[in-house]
Each structure stands twice: as C-alpha cells, then as structure tokens.
Simulated scan of single mutants.
Amino acid sequence: MGLTEGRKGVLAMVATATIWGLSSIYYKALAAVPPLEVLSHRTLWSAVFFGVVILIQRRGADVRAALADRRILALLAISSAMIAGNWFLFINAVQTGHALQSSLGYYIFPLLAVALGYLVLGERFTRLQSVSIGLAVAGVCLLTYGLGAAPWTALAIAGTFGVYGLVKNRLPLGPVISVFLETLILTPLALVWLWGMHTGAWSDIGGRTGGAFGRDFWTSAMLVFSGILTGGPLILFSYAARRIPYATLGLVQYLNPTLQFLVAVLVFGERFTVWHGVTFALIWTGLALYSSESLRQERLAVSRPGP
C-alpha cells in the first residue's frame, strides 16, 4: 500500500523541520568563517539554486511580472531585509555559543506572530491565545531577571521572523518565487561584501580576516552547499503545505526549535540554568495551549457548513 498524500505531506514537513533543526551543526562547522561572509554566500548560492529551479519550472514570466509591480517590490525590499537579519542572527548565535537563544527565538515566534496579527491586522485573541502570549512574556521577563539581561538575540530572531511572516502574508507569490527575488535583491550587497573580504578592502566587523572561499575544498563546498541547505527544505515545506492542514503544519514545525535546543545543550554543551528551565517550561506550556486552540479552530472550520 502506497502512502497517502497526507502522510507524504507529514513526512516532508518532518524532513523540513529536521533539516532546519540540525542546520546549527552545519553552521557551527563554518565557525572559522565570519558570519557576514557566511550570510553572503548563503544569499548568493540560494539565489543561484532558486534561479535554476525557476528555469527548470519555466516560471520566468512570473518573475518578470513580480518585478514589474511596484507594490510587490516594496514588500520584497522589507522581507529581504528581515530574512537577511534573521539569517545573520541565527548564524552569529550558533557561531558565538548562543544557539540556545536561537532555539528560544523560534519558540517565541508563533506567539509573537499572534500578537503582531492583533496589533497590525486587527485580529482578535481567543482566551487561550491570550494566556499563551502571557506565559511567553512571563518567561522572557523571568529569564531577564534571572540572568540580569534580556535575551536580545532570541527576541531579535523572533521579531525579524515575525515581521517577515507578516510581510510574506501580503505577498501574492509562492515561496520559490518570493525567496528567489529576496535573495536576488540581496545578491549585489553579498557580492560587494565578498569582494571586500577577498581583496582585503576591509575586514569583518569582528576584526577577523575573511575571504574563506577558495582556500580549501571543504570550506568552499560547504559555503556553496548552504544555498541547497536553504532552498531544499523550503521546497519540501511548500510540498507539505499543499497536503496537510495548517495546524498540523504548525505542530510539526516545533520540531525545528526542539532540535536546535537539544543540539545547543547536548552537542554544543551550552549552559542551561534553572532560569532557562523555567522560561522554556512556560513557553512550551504556552505553545501547547496555542496549538490546542489552533486545532480546535480548524476542526470547527471543517465541521461548519459552507455557504
């Protein structure tokens, strides 16, 4: 018996979240390369990867139509800035021993997305969603008190991804076209930065010498493969999104920060305090309530008779 379309979708989403969750190991292996240089290569090779996919799919007309629309270009400019910021924060967090904060940021993101929907789109909270957001806020406040500083990296990761999702919601483009155009917009900046790092025109912000590409085969190959590592899961995500309910998609997606959390603590050996434990427990509880509410609303929508 073959797999149903729904099961294929779940497997695709599990594969997507697993790749995302374990990608911190990959970027940690590139710790000798400055984060802005890694980001530039990730941007450049992602644009190449998606460009090839679009050529194969013969979707050049869709790209030209999007580029001719000023409103779409304005939204793409914002989403490009947000995803570049998010990628940089993630890479930098992993390389500098703050992968635990990256995990926390992606846990906070779904609850922040609900809050942004309320503030920007005028959406309304249900009671359980309000409690979920309150638990996340309480967790962040406790962690700030316990460690003596706010988890700024986690909040910035959640914030950039939250705004990115909000803008993407307004873009009438599929994920392949939109991410191709975002990386295409960022490619000139990436090329200028790489040129400066390779020619010695400037050093990395942290003072490290760049220009890693071409020094040895494996580093160069890993930098090129970062484009496939970015694009491949996104195509799997798009495949899954067409085959399984949105609530199920969201639940499986929590595998990503969970794996990030386990890698940070068990593989990288990052310090996990009592304050971290309380904070994560509060946010996990909030996510459980949020997820149960999402499933309930989806069941109601399915059972409600159509017009």
Rank of each mutant, 00 (worst) to 15 (best):
A47H: 02
T285S: 15
L112Y: 05
L249P: 00
L262T: 11
L36K: 09
C141V: 15
F237Y: 14
L147A: 10
V131P: 03
A154M: 05
L128G: 06
T16W: 06
A158C: 04
F225D: 00
L30V: 11
L55T: 11
L76G: 05
G269D: 12
S79V: 11
A150M: 14
H41C: 06
G232I: 11
G232V: 15
V114M: 10
W218P: 00
E182N: 07
T187A: 15
A15G: 12
L166T: 12
I108V: 15
Q253W: 02
A150P: 02
S46T: 15
L287D: 02
L128R: 14
F261Q: 03
L295Q: 12
L184V: 12
L30P: 07
S292V: 14
V114D: 02
S291D: 01
V192C: 11
I157M: 12
V131Q: 05
D62F: 09
P35N: 08
F90G: 03
R64W: 13
V274I: 12
L262D: 02
A288Q: 03
L104R: 06
P175D: 04
S238T: 14
R124E: 09
T126P: 03
F272N: 04
W275D: 13
G206N: 14
L189F: 15
L39Q: 04
L266A: 15
W202F: 15
R299L: 14
R215Y: 08
I235D: 00
M222T: 08
V274P: 00
F49D: 03
E293K: 06
R296Q: 08
G174P: 06
